[in-house]
Amino acid sequence: MTARPLPVPDEISAPYWAAAAGHVLAIARCARCGSFALPPDQACPHCRSTDPDYAFEPVSGRGTVRSWTVIRQSGLPGFASEVPFVLVDVELAEQPELRMIGRLLDGPAALEGPAALEGPAALDGPGEPPLRLGAPVRVGFEDVAPGVAIPAFTLAAAARPGEEP
């Protein structure tokens, strides 16, 4: 049986995967301009420096949903037992347009209604499905193999007045 594909860390990405294994989301930051880069490219996506000398810096893991899709058939046979699952396109809080795609661990129930969910997202009130444009999320991790964890997301409760998000 084909397994889910595991990331192959390389010269640039190794610190990202090492941090993820410890359930820390650390994003590459260009030493020249200070911008976050995902994925970290050979030339910095912002200042185009060819010597970005990235440092992987832990981020808050908070972000907002820009879009989603529910995967019901995957081209990767390793995901056959996981469908249907939800992928979210998330803009991380640290920088405009710093976007990441990950699984939403709440699953397709997040599209039905608050009653279908447990946890903080269920407190968001009646009506609107919790998964919507702009919905707040937090990073989570899937432990997929010994020493390998894949960043994912979970719905977070919306910040209420006077509350720290």
Partner: peptide, 12 residues
């Protein structure tokens, strides 16, 4: 998943 695919394929 090596190269560019490491950023997307592991999460499906």
């Amino acid at each position: 998943a090596a190269g560019p695919a490491q950023w997307t394929a592991p999460q499906g």
